[in-house]
Design a binder for these strands. Structure first.
Lengths: 226, 226
DNA sequence: AATATACTATGATAATTGTCATATTTAATG
DNA sequence: CATTAAATATGACAATTATCATAGTATATT
């Protein structure tokens, strides 16, 4: 078994509050999985009974609508925990979690997490803060959905992807999303998303390199998003 | 000082986990306020340093946009706690809290809450669950904003107001919101909201009694909202 | 009771965005 | 490498929703 002590999740998530003994306990109870791009970690409605540590890769939390569109609520990356909310609420997952890029995740059973929660104040506070952070982001997203146009939201999302995931050596965005996924994040039709990307391209705000996207004028994108 | 033991907030919120001694401690540290309709409990950007218990009345959590519109994120009522998120995150309030109907609230200093959080596992779990519940609602709202039309969201919101706040003896909705506030909840222009209410009225889904709203065909509203 | 002020209502119009149709390009599979 | 499938792109059009204008109605204030 790997020693969780070195793991990026241990360094970045609420788990950083765990002491040596707790980390050993963690290492003993975890199970590691590999998930290929496109596959699901868990589906909406599933009972998860634990949380998932993202060791590597990128995932999306999304919900399928009646008309077959997949609305993406959040992107998650290595270092983050997944499934905390449903575990705490004792509810089946409200959203599906799928891999956007090949992932490596560890499953930690509910009992372990609850034990840490009840015996390590710093851990419970960290977990609480992380959910609070999610809540704040969700509320702000909600407001943006109403108060901003699709164009503004696209600009905002591109900037966010740049900040959160960085760029490749050719300066294209590191997270490789399909246009459909990008549309699912900003909450619009795929065609509208593609059309606006074309516009941005013509205006030289971005450059479309095949399916990849390069941000060319960040300042202008920022201004546009406000 | 009032004994918090009898208080509705104590019965409904995370505070129900407090034991006798803790309730006495709570009662000694709280301050009670009255807030008139329209007035603010706290404003966006303010540092609150504690949470507010809502003893009576109805409040709204909202954010002002650049164009002067007030987007309502959540309505809160007696029995609920307010300001938990910013307190836990150590951040200024992300939203403003204002009274929609005359309110009575108690302020509990941060130190008290943190003390309970660190010493009472049931309390910290309750608090955690309540934030998780908010998160789930916010995520679902976000999805509804994208996937549903304004008409659907209006129907949904009317049903929610009915469920959450009930009706007066004349069967009109108990929460008395202006059309502007209602528009702020569903995320649309005030005129669009008024227009759709008119339509609903003509279709006999609702009845407009002055500024009040009576739900006349709940089944049809439900169907419409899906 | 009279005036002012805020709220509700409705029409006309414009802007935004979604939908459907159809190429075109790229990737996948035998 | 050929064929199929999937993703991207673009045009044409329709539907939804916002904005501006204006009028009516209720509420508050003096």
């Amino acid at each position: 078994m790997n020693k969780c002590d070195q793991c990026i999740v241990r360094q970045l998530s609420s788990l950083k509050a765990l002491n040596k003994d707790e980390v050993i306990q963690l290492a003993n109870s975890k199970t590691t999985y590999k998930i290929k791009k496109g596959e699901a970690i868990f589906e909406e409605g599933e009972v998860t009974n634990g949380v998932f540590c993202i060791k590597d890769g990128v995932g999306k939390l999304s919900k399928l609508s009646a008309n077959g569109k997949d609305q993406i609520v959040k992107l998650v990356q290595s270092g983050e925990l997944l499934g905390q909310r449903s575990m705490i609420s004792n509810e089946p997952a409200n959203l599906s979690a799928k891999a956007v890029a090949d992932m490596e995740v560890c499953f930690i059973p509910k009992a372990e997490i609850l034990h840490f929660f009840n015996n390590n104040n710093q851990f419970s506070m960290n977990l609480m803060q992380s959910v609070c952070e999610d809540l704040k982001e969700s509320e702000n997203d909600k407001i943006a959905l109403v108060q901003k146009t699709v164009k503004q939201r696209l600009a905002e999302t591109l900037l966010h992807l740049y900040d959160a995931f960085g760029e490749n050596t050719d300066q294209t965005l590191k997270v490789q999303l399909t246009r459909e996924e990008l549309a699912g994040i900003i909450g619009t039709a795929t065609e509208s998303c593609i059309r606006l990307l074309s516009d941005f391209n013509k205006l030289e705000l971005i450059e479309l390199v095949g399916k990849k996207i390069k941000l060319k004028n960040i300042k202008a994108l920022k201004k546009l998003s406000e």
